[in-house]
């Protein structure tokens, strides 16, 4: 296991760090709330969705890295976190490739 593990005592960001991450999460929440009312379709369709998800991913990353201590965790923990999102992506992508290509081209009904 990693030598940066918990028991060396530096497995967290300390009190100010926690408050900092908390502030980022709060700001992110408020920002995502207000930005959802802006009409960003003029930039490109779906820009609102992209922005909202980008903020959500950022917030998630902070929670995982610092609140859940992934930043100090062994490689295996990183791997399992990444793998679960990879598998989610497989489920999303391979399901959606069906829905997005139904009735296309020569097979259209």
């Amino acid at each position: 296991m990693s030598d940066k593990h918990m028991e060396t005592g530096e497995g967290h960001i300390g009190y100010p760090g926690y408050i900092g991450v908390f502030t980022i999460l709060v700001v992110g929440t408020i920002f995502t709330y207000f930005s959802s009312f802006w009409d960003l379709d003029s930039i490109f369709p779906g820009a609102n969705t992209l922005l909202a998800l980008a903020i959500a991913f950022t917030k998630m990353t902070f929670v995982m890295l610092f609140f859940m201590h992934v930043y100090w965790s062994p490689r295996l923990i990183w791997l399992s976190a990444v793998a679960s999102f990879f598998w989610l992506a497989i489920m999303f992508a391979y399901t959606m490739q069906d829905y997005f290509t139904r009735g296309l081209g020569v097979f259209s009904v």
């Binding site: 391979y94 490739q97 069906d98 829905y99 997005f100 290509t101 139904r102 009735g103 296309l104 097979f107």
Partner: peptide, 10 residues
């Protein structure tokens, strides 16, 4: 009833 394209990939 799955898309033929998805079928080909699978």
């Amino acid at each position: 009833g799955q898309s033929i394209y998805a079928g080909m990939v699978f």
